[in-house]
Design a protein around this nucleic acid. Sequence first.
RNA 1: GCUCCCAUCGUCUAGCGGUCCAGGACGUCGCCCUCUCAAGGCGAAAACACGAGUUCGAUUCUCGUUGGGAGUACCA
Length: 466
Amino acid sequence: MPVRTRFAPSPTGYLHIGGARTALYCWLEARRRGGAFVLRIEDTDRERSTDAAVQAILDGMAWLGLDYDEGPIFQTRRMARYSEVARGLLEAGKAYWAYESKEEIDAMRAAAMARGEKPRYDGHYRELGAAYREDPNRVLRFKNPHDGSVVFDDAVKGRVEWRNEELDDLVLIRSDGYPTYNFAVVVDDIDMRIDEVIRGDDHVNNTPRQINLYHALGAAVPRFAHLPMILGADGQKLSKRHGAVSVMQYREDGFLPHALLNYLVRLGWSHGDQEIFSRAEMIAAFDIGAVNQSASRFDLAKLGWLNQHYLKTDDPAALAPELVWHLQRCGIEPAQGPAPEDVIVALRERVQTLKEMAMRARIWYAPISAWDEQAVAKHLGGAGARAALLAVHTHLAALTAWTPGQVGEAISATAAALGVGMGKIAQPLRVAITGSQVSPSIEHTVYLAGQREALRRIDVALARTG
RNA sequence: GCUCCCAUCGUCUAGCGGUCCAGGACGUCGCCCUCUCAAGGCGAAAACACGAGUUCGAUUCUCGUUGGGAGUACCA
């Protein structure tokens, strides 16, 4: 029977790096084994869930190309089902109503802590067996077993054992009538026939309680896989302050979705010495059982390297729309200049992100806005510069076909005619076209400006020569 | 505090008792190439946290220490 996995974020914020990797692993596991991948939105926290966050998660999934077979399923639309299951548990004597106020619970914990014990609910109403009554503090609690222990074989952590005496009677239904996370996940995972639960490390502690719930409900316990955390570059937990940015922020910063996916898949998992994985390759090679057990740090430099790798190897035509998007965000009108594909070819070996590329492409879409005076002094100052520019102007003006190749030949011919090295021609020309002494190869730099504009810029530069 | 988890180059990792004076990748440094900057090629520096065991033999197994992390909610 094909596996069924799910990604179950709570809509209390955007889709961040850690969530994205969890989603990726769930997706990969389902795809590799020909199973189904379900997206479920865990929105039972009415205080913190927002529609904007739901949308942000959906957008992030879409951008990354992590398609789901079912969902998004919203827990708040399944309220009747939770009540039904809760009632069943109550009738079976596996749950009970409790009426402590939050203050009383807090005091109970504080007292336990003071005794050096684990802060937990003392099961007061479990013993009391009080009848149901309307009460603002009324919650439904689960009768967790007192004895024995819960053992599970985690796909990444291995065997984990928990003594039941460490666990207390968790709340199933809150006083506001909404189910708690631990209850809703179990009900949902059973109903949705999830047999492989892949989630963050921070859920290991909940697992034994959930397993007890599975038992109480007479359901088969799924296989669990708890992923280690992704830490910030400084080794600290990812937080709003550092690194935990939305995956969509990576798009804005100029990263490609498949580069991010490739980076993420290798964070905590490896396949021999392979670093580069296409989608198909990661699907074929991924193995949840081979995931690392220790936390890893997010390294932007390596992401940058991967991103450039894809910039260099992807079809420029496929990248063009994304570059256009970035150009527009930089306030550049792409229609006014060279074809984006040509810009990509000229710049992809020089930048790591599309954002950088867009910024550096500005010189071909808009007039020179600032001259690097040092470059002007160094390359336009001498007498040779003037002669070089005059000669190259002539050669370029004579071209009937305007291609990087033709432009390159015209420049080489100029150097040959003057009996000087390429540098004597290329550098003054580079400054003339771009106003700076750094740019892509000279033939691309000139080619991208267009014949008319290139010649015009040489004329302008001529006025600046000494 | 208590419970659980983790520990190989700066970073991501390979390693599943001898083939490891520990391999790959990013980053760093050097050289080459060169019209600038890159990209590319070649090369270098760089790690088994510590201490006990087990064993003929531990990076690999066990325990402890230290150091990280997670949870300890009517948040997920």
